[in-house]
């Protein structure tokens, strides 16, 4: 009984380690093919631009809405609570920390995972089932360089741009609410924010957004390619793309934040 249980644990562990190696190999292949993508005659700049359009441009609306509301909530809570403790001037530092450094990158990553991670995993999974991926291999097109790399670049660039956009709109949302509660000139508001903003905040945010973009695109393409034969596998893989994308972004976020405070 105990031996059987141990055997099962051992088998599961071995399978997980094998999958981890496979996923690592997949990621290394993506990195390997990324620099040479411009030399591929069948991979056009247009493909990468289209990916940025789908992932980045089309998400502007929802990112603006989420960031405006988050910015508004933070300033309302800050203005209501901080003066009670005589720390009213900390509101700008809190805005920078919460919106720019923490919530901006992670919420943008969640939005992109939900929108584009699912779309990428579904599209690639469907292509596997209809043998389109095999057809690319048959004519000498490497699926990594043709199908993964443009999505990898497009999603990563989009997450970086949308994170900046999230931060700007979040801070703008705060300003709008400030005008309703405690009007302050835009110039003073901006100066206060800039004096609270440090270079390390920008570096941390930029680094996080790059890491999240890589995580989302690699997980989504990996799960899309993991579909084998049946269309019923596609929703299962899409769910994994979302859940694993979220988990890995959370873990990466925690590690980067930890490094920031070390």
């Amino acid at each position: 009984m105990a031996v059987a249980a141990l055997e099962r644990i051992g088998r599961d562990l071995r399978a997980r380690v094998r999958k981890l190696f496979y996923a690592t190999g997949f990621f290394l292949q993506v990195l390997r093919h990324t620099p040479g993508v411009a030399r591929q005659p069948h991979v056009s700049l247009k493909g990468i631009v289209l990916q940025i359009l789908f992932t980045g441009y089309e998400a502007f609306g929802i990112v603006a809405l989420v960031s405006l509301s988050i910015g508004a909530i933070i300033i309302i809570q800050g203005i209501a609570l901080l003066p009670r403790f005589g720390q009213g001037e900390l509101v700008y530092s809190i805005l920078i920390i919460v919106i720019v450094r923490e919530l901006g990158p992670i919420l943008t990553a969640f939005i992109i995972t939900a929108r584009s991670g699912t779309a990428i995993a579904t599209e690639l999974g469907s292509m596997v089932v209809s043998h389109e991926v095999e057809a690319y291999v048959a004519v000498g097109v490497n699926p990594i360089s043709y199908l993964v790399v443009p999505r990898f670049i497009g999603v990563t660039v989009s997450v970086v741009v949308l994170t900046i956009y999230f931060s700007i709109f979040g801070l703008f949302g705060s300003y709008l609410v400030t005008q309703l509660i405690e009007p302050i000139p835009l110039r003073d508001y901006t100066q206060n924010l800039l004096s609270a903003l440090q270079l390390v905040d920008i570096v941390s945010t930029f680094f996080k957004s790059i890491v999240f973009g890589i995580v989302i695109s690699v997980v989504a393409t990996f799960e899309g390619f993991a579909v084998e034969r049946s269309s019923t596998e596609i929703p299962q893989r899409v769910i994994r793309a979302v859940s694993r994308g979220f988990v890995l972004c959370f873990v990466a976020n925690a590690i980067i934040t930890l490094i920031y405070y070390l």
């Binding site: 005659p41 069948h42 292509m127 209809s130 043998h131 389109e132 095999e134 057809a135 690319y136 048959a138 004519v139 000498g140 097109v141």
Partner: peptide, 26 residues
């Protein structure tokens, strides 16, 4: 040259581009 049982044409390309891709690559 490989002919798939279910054709496996690329859905995101029109017929001309489906035929042209092997030429573009090679």
């Amino acid at each position: 040259g490989f002919l798939f049982q279910d054709s496996a044409l690329w859905a995101n390309r029109n017929v001309l581009d489906n035929v042209g891709l092997p030429l573009l690559v090679h």
